[in-house]
């Protein structure tokens, strides 16, 4: 039992490390298909997190946790990437051309964000001990890196990916630190995210058809 829970905790930590590494790679990649794929892998890995956290001895393993993980796995791993890839196909763009902050600078900013999250994570009082000391800093850095991607990417699709990453961070936060959170809230959040991605996918499709590009900083200029 103890060996099993140690293993579960190890897997949970590996998932968290994987998430933060994919965050950083995502900040440095310009190809849109690869950012979408990275966010999909991130979502699939996170699908296992609730189960691992509960097996590590933090709360009972209930059906709702397993369902939550499965729904997350299916939506973030398959449904969202499919919607975004379809929007990408119609928009006919391949690369993020001119981000507001360059790719290498973004990675450095990402490292700074991770360091700041560790600093912050050590100072936030928690209602109860986290399953691993990594949980809080990783959740904070994933939220902040998602926010950073939303604000510094000029391409509408990358902004959606940033939004998904930010939501992943919120999910880590919820799973690792607030397991009492009602099931209905988690499902509601997932539904919201689904609707948001759905609407954004349609919006990107229309923007791409109207403007022949999906660079948001050029949308304000008039078209003849």
């Amino acid at each position: 039992m103890s060996l099993l829970s140690d293993l579960a905790r190890l897997i949970a930590e590996l998932i968290l490390i994987f998430v933060v590494l994919t965050d950083l790679i995502l900040l440095g990649s310009s190809r849109l298909t690869s950012t979408i794929r990275l966010s999909a892998w991130q979502g699939m890995a996170l699908g296992f997190l609730p189960l691992m956290v509960s097996r590590a001895g933090f709360g009972p393993t209930t059906l709702r946790l397993v369902t939550l993980g499965a729904v997350l796995f299916a939506m973030k791993g398959f449904l969202f990437p499919r919607l975004l890839l379809r929007a990408l196909r119609t928009a006919e763009v391949r690369h993020e051309i001119r981000p507001i902050v360059g790719f290498q600078a973004s990675i450095l900013a990402g490292i700074a964000i991770v360091a700041a999250s560790f600093w912050m994570g050590g100072r936030l009082p928690l209602p109860r001990p986290a399953p691993t000391p990594l949980a809080l800093p990783m959740a904070l850095s994933t939220i902040l890196i998602g926010l950073f991607a939303i604000t510094t990417r000029a391409n509408a699709l990358n902004q959606v990916v940033g939004y998904l990453v930010m939501e992943n961070g919120i999910f880590i936060f919820g799973v690792a630190l607030a397991q009492e959170e009602p099931f209905i809230v988690e499902m509601g959040v997932l539904l919201d995210v689904f609707v948001a991605v759905f609407v954004m996918g349609i919006a990107i499709f229309h923007i791409g058809r109207e403007f022949d590009h999906i660079e948001v900083d050029q949308l304000s200029s008039l078209k003849d």
């Binding site: 990675i107 991770v114 560790f118």
Partner: peptide, 16 residues
């Protein structure tokens, strides 16, 4: 830069 990122992350973990 990816290698530098890994090193920095390790350093952050150490100081964390």
């Amino acid at each position: 830069i990816f290698a530098t990122t890994l090193s920095t992350l390790a350093l952050v973990f150490e100081f964390g």
